[in-house]
């Protein structure tokens, strides 16, 4: 051992790498916070400002505004329900096409996976904008948008479940001479059924949250009146919308989560 030379605790190369990563992360943050005008100090100021706003402007809510809020929230829920239902029905067959252990035809498997990957990069609101253009303003555009949005999520989750199932039963049915539909119906489906229902409920929760904002681009639901009241700075009404929406979302989440816990 050379007694004169300093022995590093962390090798130089690793030290430089770590410092480099830190410098990149922090300078990107510095750039982003200047660009968006949100230094950490200003960020921390925003939180008390929010509470002041809630106490001074949002409270008390305009309770009588519920007459407008309820139908809008019902429409939001219906959009979430219908789009999820459609996605639940259509995702099942496509999930088997996207599962490598069921669909062994590579010329079919790869295009399906590719299409799904592309679909999942599109944010939900962009689908909403496109469908408003295609089918016009209204709830139908929202249903279509969230249908395609949740199709991507649901197929990914279900096909991963299918790929993780026990291959034994599939082999057994294949060995008795069963065709591909019989393999799926008797071998794969019973194994994935609890997860299938659970993921469907999970996607319903996601869609309820996503559907809140659809109205901002004209795709139906509570977002429409929210947008109107915001441009009028009518904080009493906005508070009422936030209040009822929060309660509605919490009820749906709680029900769905407790159902999902029992399933899996």
């Amino acid at each position: 051992m050379d007694k004169q030379k300093r022995i590093p605790i962390i090798p130089l190369k690793q030290k430089l790498f770590t410092v480099g990563v830190l410098v990149v992360v922090l300078s990107l943050y510095a750039a982003a916070s200047i660009f968006t005008g949100s230094s950490p100090a200003r960020f921390m100021n925003g939180i008390p400002e929010m509470f002041n706003f809630i106490i001074n402007d949002l409270i008390p809510p305009n309770w009588s505004y519920y007459e407008r809020v309820f139908p809008a929230l019902l429409e939001t829920w219906n959009i979430a329900l219908l789009s999820t239902s459609l996605a639940v029905v259509f995702s099942l067959p496509i999930s088997f096409l996207a599962a490598g252990n069921i669909n062994k035809k590579l010329w079919l498997y790869h295009p399906v996976r590719f299409a799904l990957n592309v679909l999942r990069t599109i944010p939900d609101m962009i689908l909403a904008v496109m469908f408003v253009a295609i089918v016009g303003l209204g709830a139908l555009a929202g249903v279509y948008a969230l249908f395609f949005f949740s199709l991507g999520i649901l197929i990914k989750l279900i096909s991963e479940t299918v790929e993780a199932i026990d291959p034994g039963p599939l082999e057994a049915i294949r060995a008795t001479g069963g065709n591909i539909l019989q393999i799926i119906w008797f071998g794969a489906l019973p194994q994935i059924l609890p997860q299938y229902v659970s993921y469907s409920l999970y996607v319903l929760e996601i869609n309820v949250r996503a559907s809140l904002v659809l109205g901002f681009v004209g795709a139906g639901g509570i977002g429409l009146i929210l947008k109107q009241q915001m441009s009028l700075f009518n904080y009493g009404n906005i508070a009422m919308i936030i209040f009822i929406t929060f309660i509605g979302v919490t009820i749906i989440d709680t029900l769905s989560t407790s159902l999902r816990k029992r399933l899996v």
Binding site: F35, T36, G37, S38, R42, G46, E49, M50, N52, F53, I54, D57, L58, R209, L212, V213, G223, L226, M230, F233, Y235, I238, I242, T245, F246, V249, T250, D253
Partner: peptide
């Protein structure tokens, strides 16, 4: 987590003004 993101955004837009902040 119970509070939808969009409602946070609306409250912040209303309290600190529109924009990236």
């Amino acid at each position: 987590r119970a509070f939808p993101e969009i409602l946070f955004a609306i409250i912040f837009v209303a309290s600190v003004g529109m924009g990236p902040y």
